[in-house]
Design a protein around this nucleic acid. Structure first.
Length: 948
RNA sequence: GCCCGGGUGGCGGAAUUGGUAGACGCGCUGGAUUCAAAAUCCAGUUCCUUCGGGAGUGCGGGUUCGAUUCCCGCCCCGGGUACCA
């Protein structure tokens, strides 16, 4: 030991000695100086552009991408970088494996929080976005990511959203041709209409139109424009929104709490509004089918499948007594048609007002008002409250001509299917509950259940009470009914999707302006040279007094004298194609050149949260397929492999205030009092113990707090929650980096648990990883000074290293980084014990560790005089010859319970093993007076003796 | 409600996918070192136990020589649910 010769003679000189040792630590290698080393390598990487990618390379390409962050005002907490660390490790691994790696980063910066903040403070969202992104960048840089920052952009950069707007225009100028299963330019549709009208047209549309060529050509410009909107992929139509009259704006479900606006607590109602939408439903089948060819988790694919919600059944119509109109319904159970005892319409259904009889007018009107006050989510979730109202009208059963009452009920949603259902209470639970509640008849048509007790929803059984279907199996009846309906002209087989067209317009300021102007009411797109259409200045970020969106406040919001569109694009617009922009981030003449998109192609590995399963991930697939159809890119899925990282949760701390007092009682004593739990900042705690004086200083309201202690301490109760500033349970990565270094943060985040799982953050655990790194460093500095031996390494050491290499390689492919880190710890512990110091053993370990702890690895690599940067050295592969075992310590079980161990050579056959086990004295001891009934031997695994 | 995850010591988690449950780390306990503390090192640490054992992977069943792992039925927690990102 370096300090072994120094002896402390008396207490006075000892203080001096302590100071001396600290100075010594600083000046030699004994302690790993993370501040110095992190800084050294981070600036070197930045200087040399170590992570900048280039598309012309003879190496194979590999594209690693993170779901880019929304830069919130709170800055990053330790939960945010989890996915970035994982992707960084993988990108570095791929680089060491000889790939040309693209790993960029940017910001998804449009969105509500910045707008809300702007409304509150009057500060321009651009300004706060600027501040927030700068802070994010600083925090990200601290962690030592191997990111290509030369490609950085924000979705709010006009140079970026210019191309978001351009893609919108391409969507506007396109339609979907089902006869070839592709998007097509609108000019082809116009040519078709001119030549043949709608004859032979198989296009995705809002409403099925029948037009002759003459009818089309005789239309005026605005009629033609209106007609084309029926087909365009970006189009305008009426759709339902949450309208808050007091705020004069549309609200997200997220902004509504218990039916009232979160801001101000005003009532919210459902309202129809003219809105820009995207015809994503045209792509439903391809979005479904494409899932079979991408490497995403089954759960995620399943979520998308359910969201798309393809169901097969029949579409049929009911005549209405004394009306010419018909009610169209979609059903997945046409076999149960004879069991229809009523028809239910969504309260918003367009026929409701026409059908309602005078006697029912008042009742229907007030029910509609009640239904409008409920959000769609409430209506779906609440299956216990049953409500509805009879319209007074009757529908005629298409097969029996029997009259069935027409009801409205809020369990039927206007946005799903046709907004009307044929109710078969005997075989559908929701219909059953409705029928029971309103005492409507229930007619059984499939045998097998007990309809007095509950609906029989099973899709199999024999048909009864169903005329010509009687005796058939339900699945056969289904086919038979559809054929019959087609014959009589009352229906046909149909496929229905739950997926709805995506509403694209937002009544907001902080989004991309939609590049549309209105020429005498006709929507027209801006020419390319007018892009980007920049966000205008406004006096306030609020709607106008007459309820128009904030952009309507802008002066001269017009193009060549024509008014511009005032809604903006949703958050998902910019994030639907950003992965393409990273391939060619500074292109001024195209969203990205074909050359670069052809080279980088899909994202090979995409990492992000599961909360984007149906939003972002579906829209990005949709836009990719569209751009593929239009030949702008040559692949039709954006993300080949996708990993969902879990959340890092915070462990919140609570103090317990005795109700109505300013006295706080320690957690163990709360049962004796009536208390309220209050969040307290976790930084005020040491373990679970509260620093009461720090608490008093924390906030004015606690200045005069008094405490009831237990064992002289004030203990807080703890709870795992989402990590969030408002819960005072956040940990800032900067603090960890400062105290332990970037590599410790990186490794600890990975060590916490499986990447895909949620797990709570516990700062105490850092010392484990930190200890590992010191130990690892010490292998190279056995007596405080760097030293490496050149001779051959011990056999045991080589075995330890090669099993570590093997494990890490396996884990790398499964993204199982937590187990890699324990493998590193195990190897380091063993090598420490073996006092291993040979290059043969230690150098590969540095190469292996480089993706996880790049700063430490670079420093050691330099000391080892490795060639170039460790970031491009090869990644080690294990050699089996070091791992071969000759014997196995068998567990010997009796009836499944392990009773003793038996060390045996692995070369033995089952018979040999059986003979040895039978003759072992411990076996007869275990057997007692029982007989061996069977012996199960799995060579290399276990021995189990069944006795009895 | 519906859809998708998850549940293993005091805590985060591991377990070759049916074969010794609790690797690795934290915490805790004891010891060494120290005037003392930090750091470091060593030992122990699922629970119960009459020290022979017994129980044990959310709960209740089942399949199997053997189940954390497979099957059936529940309970609890997290995410999504179409204008949060």
């Amino acid at each position: 030991m370096f300090f072994g010769t120094h002896r402390c003679e008396n207490s006075k000189s000892c203080a001096a000695f302590t100071n001396f040792t600290r100075v010594q630590h600083f000046f030699n290698d004994m302690e790993y100086n993370h501040r110095k080393i992190d800084q050294k390598w981070q600036s070197k990487w930045a200087q040399e552009g170590t992570y900048d990618a280039s598309y012309n390379s003879d190496k194979p390409k590999f594209y690693v991408l993170d779901m880019f962050p929304y830069p919130s005002g709170a800055g990053l907490h330790v939960g945010h970088p989890l996915g970035y660390i994982a992707s960084d490790i993988y990108a570095r691994y791929k680089r060491q494996k000889g790939f040309n790696v693209l790993h960029p980063m940017g910001y998804d910066a449009f969105g509500l929080p910045a707008e809300q903040y702007a409304i509150q403070t009057g500060q321009h969202p651009e300004k706060t976005t600027e501040i927030n992104t700068a802070r994010y960048r600083e925090q990200l840089d601290n962690i030592g990511f191997g990111l290509d920052w030369s490609r950085e952009f924000k979705t709010t950069d006009p140079n970026y959203y210019k191309w978001t707007q351009w893609i919108f225009i391409q969507l506007f100028e396109a339609w979907y041709d089902h006869s070839i299963g592709k998007s097509q330019p609108i000019s082809k549709l116009i040519a078709h209409l001119e030549a043949r009208g709608t004859e032979g047209l198989n296009a995705e549309c809002t409403e099925e139109l029948v037009l002759s060529a003459e009818q089309w050509t005789s239309m005026n410009e605005s009629q033609q424009a209106e007609t084309l909107l029926n087909y365009r992929l970006a189009y305008r139509s009426q759709s339902n929104v949450n309208w808050c009259p007091e705020l004069g704006t549309v609200l997200a479900n997220d902004e509504i709490k218990d039916g009232l606006s979160e801001r101000g607590g005003h009532p919210v109602t459902q309202k129809k509004m003219m809105q820009w939408s995207m015809r994503i439903t045209a792509f439903a089948d391809r979005l479904l089918e494409g899932l079979d060819h991408i490497d995403w988790s089954n759960s995620l694919k399943e979520t998308q499948r359910n969201w798309i919600g393809k169901s097969q059944g029949a579409s049929l119509v009911f005549d209405i007594k004394d009306h010419t109109a018909q009610i169209e319904v979609f059903t997945t159970r046409p076999d149960t048609l004879f069991g229809v005892t009523f028809v239910t319409l969504a309260p918003e259904h367009e026929l409701v007002d026409i059908l309602t009889t005078t006697g029912q007018l008042e009742a229907i009107k007030s029910y509609k008002a009640i239904a409008a006050a409920r959000s769609e989510r409430d209506r779906m979730a609440d299956t216990k409250t049953i409500s509805g109202c009879f319209t007074g009208a009757y529908a005629l059963h298409p097969l029996t001509q029997k009259q069935v009452p027409i009801w409205i009920g809020d369990y039927v949603l206007a946005s799903y299917g046709t907004g009307a259902v044929m109710a078969v209470p005997a075989h559908d639970s929701r219909d059953y509950a409705f029928a029971k509640h309103f005492d409507l008849p229930i007619q059984e048509v499939v045998s097998g259940g007990d309809i007095n007790q509950e609906a029989f929803d099973a899709k199999s059984g024999k048909m009864i009470n169903s005329d010509f279907l009687n005796g058939m199996e339900a699945s056969v009846a289904k086919v038979s009914v559809i054929a019959h309906l087609e014959n009589i002209g009352y229906g046909k087989g149909a496929t229905q999707y739950k997926l709805r067209d995506a509403v694209f317009g937002r009544q907001r300021y902080w989004g991309e302006p939609i590049p549309i102007y209105y020429d005498h009411g006709v929507a027209k797109t801006l020419p390319l040279d007018a892009l980007p259409l920049k966000l205008p200045e406004v006096d306030k970020y609020l709607p106008t007094l007459d309820g128009k969106p904030p952009l309507a406040r802008a002066k001269h919001w017009e193009y060549k004298g024509h008014p511009l569109e005032t809604t903006t694009m949703p958050g998902w617009a910019g994030s639907s194609w950003y992965f393409l922009r990273f391939m060619d981030a500074h292109n001024e003449t195209a969203f990205a050149s074909k050359l670069t998109t052809d080279y980088w192609k899909q994202v090979d590995v995409y990492i992000g949260g599961a909360e984007h399963a149906t939003g972002h991930l579906l829209y990005a697939r949709f836009w990719t397929k569209f751009l593929f159809d239009m030949n702008f890119i040559s692949f039709d899925e954006p993300f080949k492999k996708l990993i969902n990282q879990g959340m890092i949760q915070g462990i919140s701390a609570f103090v317990h205030r005795i109700n109505g007092t300013n006295t706080y009682v320690s957690a163990g004593l709360i049962e004796q009092h009536e208390t309220q739990a209050i969040h307290v900042d976790v930084s005020l705690l040491q373990g679970n113990e509260l620093d009461t004086s720090a608490f008093k200083n924390w906030r004015k309201e606690y200045e005069h707090a008094t405490f009831i202690l237990e064992d002289g301490k004030y203990l807080c109760s703890r709870e795992v929650e989402k990590m969030s500033k408002s819960k005072f349970n956040v940990t800032n990565p900067d603090d960890i980096v400062d105290k332990y270094g970037a590599d410790v943060l990186r490794m600890y985040e990975m060590f916490l648990g499986p990447l895909e799982q949620s797990k709570p953050w516990n700062t105490q655990g850092l010392s484990g990883v930190s200890g590992f790194q010191r130990k690892f460093w010490k292998l190279f500095h056995p007596s405080g000074i760097f030293k490496i031996s050149e001779g051959p390494a011990d056999k045991k050491a080589l075995k330890a290293i090669h099993s570590c290499i093997k494990k890490v390689n396996e884990d790398m492919n499964n993204f199982s980084f937590n187990t890699s880190i324990s493998a590193f710890m195990i190897a380091t512990n063993e090598l420490t014990e073996l006092k291993t110091n040979e290059r043969e053993a230690l150098q590969p370990l540095v190469q292996l560790l480089a993706p996880f702890a790049p700063h430490l690895a670079e420093e050691l690599w330099e000391k080892l005089s490795g060639e170039g940067s460790v970031t491009v050295c090869s990644f080690p592969e294990h050699e089996e010859k070091y791992l071969i075992e000759s014997s196995k310590n068998y567990p010997v079980s009796f009836n499944g319970k392990v009773r003793f161990q038996l060390e045996l050579p692995l070369s033995l056959t089952s018979e040999d093993i059986e003979n040895i086990v039978r003759s072992d004295p411990r076996t007869s001891e275990q057997l007692g007076d029982k007989q061996v009934r069977k012996i199960i031997i799995v060579p290399g695994r276990i021995i189990n003796i069944v006795m009895g």
